[in-house]
Design a protein around this nucleic acid. Structure first.
Lengths: 340, 340
DNA sequence: GTGAAAGCGCTAACAT
DNA sequence: ATGTTAGCGCTTTCAC
C-alpha cells in the first residue's frame, strides 16, 4: 500500500512547514505564487486528498445527513430517498441511510449510532411501531441535543421540527370529488395502513367529500385495516355490496381491489372506477393501468433536504422558525377511471 | 444548546484527568472501582457519547461503507441495498449511499467524495454508462489506494476485486428449459437492457437452451434493445410471428410483453407462457401474476457486505484472495406459466 | 491507581 | 511570505 499522502509528509518532502502547505493548497494569498505552484503540483502528483475526518474534527461539521426510512422497498420511500440524495449531493452533502423496518427499536438504535458527531442532522419518516406506540422521546432528545430533524410524510404533531408532507386530507377530498363527478354513487374506501396518520387523514377527506355531496357514508363499504392479511380476508365482503367506485389509501389495497374486480369479471372502468394512492411504476403497468394520487416523492425528498441544509448552514442567531411544507399531490388519470 | 459533553469537561467537573475518564469509561482495570463508578454515572447523567469523528481520526477507520447504486427506484437494487444495510448494521457499520443514476460522471464523483477517509470500502454495481464506455480507471485507482471494492450484479472482469453475482447464464438456460418442458416450441427473447453484461449472459443462456433442444434460434422473435422506446416500438413485430412463449430479461420487457398479449386477447398461460427476470412485488400483483427468475436481492446485498467487512477486518497479512460469489436464482412459478 | 504528554491530520491565530 | 503553536476529542504509552 502506498502511504496516504498527508500535509506533514508533503511538508517534509518539500522542506516547508505544514501550514505553508495547507495555505498553498487552499490558495491563500499569504503564499507566494512560486511556492503555491510547487506545492500544488507536488500534491497532485502524490494524489493528495485532505483527510475528511480531520477536517470534520476541526470544523465540527460532517456535511453528512442521516436518513431513516421505514422501508426502502416501498417505492414511495425510494422516490423520496432519491430526491434527498440528489438535493444533498448538489449541496455537497453525503447521506447515511438507515432502514428502521417499521421498528421503534431500530429507529432508536439508528439515531443513537449517528448522534455522536457522525451526522449533522436527520431526515426521517416515523416507523409504524413508533407511530402506534406514540413514543417520540428519541426525536425530542436529538432536537434538544441540537441535532435538527426534518420529518416527512409520517410526522407527529408532538415533535416540533421542520416537516414536509402532502396534503392528505385535501388530496382525498379532491380524488373522491372527482369520482363523484364521474357519476360514482357508492364509493368503497379501502386501507391496509389504518394505523398511520396519513391513512387517517385520507379517510377523513373521503368522509367529508361523500358527506358534502349529500351521499350517506356506508360503513359496509369501508374497510380500514392495519395489516394485509385481515384486509385480504375481508375484501370479498366489500364487493358483496353494490359499489361503483373504489378509493384505496395505499398500494396493497389498490392492487388487491383491482385484482379482485378483474377476477369477478367486473368491467373497469365502465362498471367500477378505481383511484389509489400509489407511487410505483407498476400503477402504469397494470392492465388496466391504475389512476393514482401521486405524491411527488422526489420533490418531497428535495424539499426536506433543502430545509435541513438551510437550517444547518444558518448562522446561530438566525435559525429559521419551524415550518411545515406542503407538497401538492396530483391526480393521475389512467385507465381505471372513466374520462370526464 | 446544552454543550456536548466531552472527556475534557467531565474530567474538569470531576477533578480528575482526561485519561482517567477515558479509561474509566472503557472499563480499564487500571482504574479503581469507586472512580470508575463515579465517572460512569456522571457520564451517563451528562448523556456523554464519545465523539465518533475523534475516534475515527485516532483509529483511522470509520466503520462506514460507501454504497453506489445505479438506481434505487429499481426494485432489484432496492432489495440488494436493504440486504447491505442489514448486514452492515449487524456488524456495527454504517452505510453512505450514492446514486449514480447510470452516469459515469456521478459514479466518479461519488467515489471521489468518499475516498478521503469518509468510508472504509465500497460496495457498488457498475453504472450503465460506465459499462458501455468500459471506463474503469476510478475503480482501479480506489483499489490501488487500498480502498477495497465489492462489486455486485453488474461487474467487470477488468477489475480485480471481490464480486457477488447470480449465475445469469445458467438461470436463463434453466428457465428456457422449463418452458420447453411446458411444450413451448417458439420462445421469444426480449430485453431492454442489452447494453448490460447481465443481459448478454442471459441471452447466451437462451440461445444455448434453444439449440440444445434442437430448435432453431429464430432472430425474428428475438428483440434485444438497450432502451425502452425502441423496444416499445418494435414489440408488435415480435407478436406478428407465431410464438408460444416469452422469456424476458428485465422488468420492462416482462410487463410490456404481458400487457401487449392481454390487449391482443391472447390467453396466458394457455396460449402463451411468460417468464421474466423481476424482483419487484408487482410481479405477484399482475393479473395473471408473472412467473419470474428471482435473484434473491437481499442475499446478494448481505453477501457483499459480509465480504467487504471480512476483508476490512482481516489482519494486514491475511487479506483473503479475491473471490466471486455466485448466488443461486430461483424460478418462481406463478400464473403466467402452465403447471408442469 | 492516576496523570501527563504525544499524536491522529488538519486549520488558523499569531509570530517572525 | 513562511513558520510556530495551539487545539479539535480521543486513545494510549509512559511516568509518577
Amino acid at each position: 500500500m502506498k502511504q496516504k499522502a498527508t500535509l506533514k509528509q508533503i511538508a517534509k518532502e518539500l522542506n516547508v512547514s505544514v501550514s505553508t502547505v495547507s495555505k498553498a493548497l487552499s490558495n491563500s494569498p499569504e503564499i507566494s505564487e512560486p511556492t503555491k505552484i510547487r506545492v500544488q503540483e507536488f500534491a497532485k502528483l502524490k494524489n493528495y486528498k485532505p483527510n475528511n475526518i480531520a477536517v470534520n474534527l476541526k470544523s465540527k461539521r460532517t456535511k453528512t445527513i442521516g436518513v431513516i426510512i421505514p422501508n426502502i422497498l416501498n417505492p414511495f420511500f425510494a422516490k423520496v430517498f432519491s430526491g434527498i440524495e440528489k438535493a444533498a449531493n448538489d449541496r455537497g452533502y453525503n447521506v447515511i441511510t438507515c432502514i428502521s423496518n417499521e421498528s421503534l427499536q431500530k429507529e432508536i438504535h439508528a439515531m443513537d449510532m449517528l448522534s455522536n458527531g457522525t451526522i449533522d442532522g436527520f431526515i426521517l419518516s416515523i416507523s409504524e411501531e413508533t407511530q402506534t406506540k406514540q413514543d417520540f422521546k428519541h426525536f425530542k432528545e436529538a432536537i434538544s441535543d441540537d441535532i435538527p430533524i426534518v420529518m416527512f410524510d409520517r410526522i407527529s404533531d408532538e415533535v416540533s421540527c421542520d416537516k414536509v408532507v402532502v396534503d392528505d386530507f385535501d388530496s382525498a377530498v379532491h380524488a373522491v370529488n372527482h369520482m363523484i363527478k364521474l357519476n360514482c354513487k357508492r364509493i368503497a374506501l379501502l386501507s391496509t395502513i389504518d394505523n398511520l396518520s396519513v391513512s387517517k387523514l385520507r379517510a377523513k377527506g373521503y368522509r367529508k367529500a361523500v358527506a358534502d355531496n349529500n351521499y350517506k357514508v356506508d360503513e359496509n363499504i369501508i374497510l380500514l385495516t392495519d395489516n394485509t392479511e385481515e384486509f385480504d380476508n375481508k375484501l370479498g365482503f366489500v364487493f358483496e355490496n353494490d359499489i361503483d367506485g373504489i378509493f384505496a389509501l395505499d398500494e396493497h389495497a389498490s392492487v388487491m381491489a383491482m385484482k379482485h374486480a378483474i377476477k369477478k369479471g367486473i368491467k373497469i372502468p365502465d362498471e367500477l372506477n378505481i383511484i389509489g394512492f400509489a407511487d410505483g411504476v407498476w400503477s402504469r403497468r397494470l392492465t388496466p393501468s391504475l389512476s393514482t394520487v401521486s405524491q411527488h416523492g422526489p420533490e418531497i425528498g428535495e424539499a426536506a433536504a433543502e430545509m435541513l441544509i438551510n437550517r444547518l448552514e444558518a448562522k446561530e442567531e438566525e435559525a429559521p422558525e419551524y415550518v411545515t411544507k406542503v407538497i401538492k399531490t396530483e391526480l393521475r388519470q389512467r385507465e381505471s377511471t372513466r374520462k370526464l
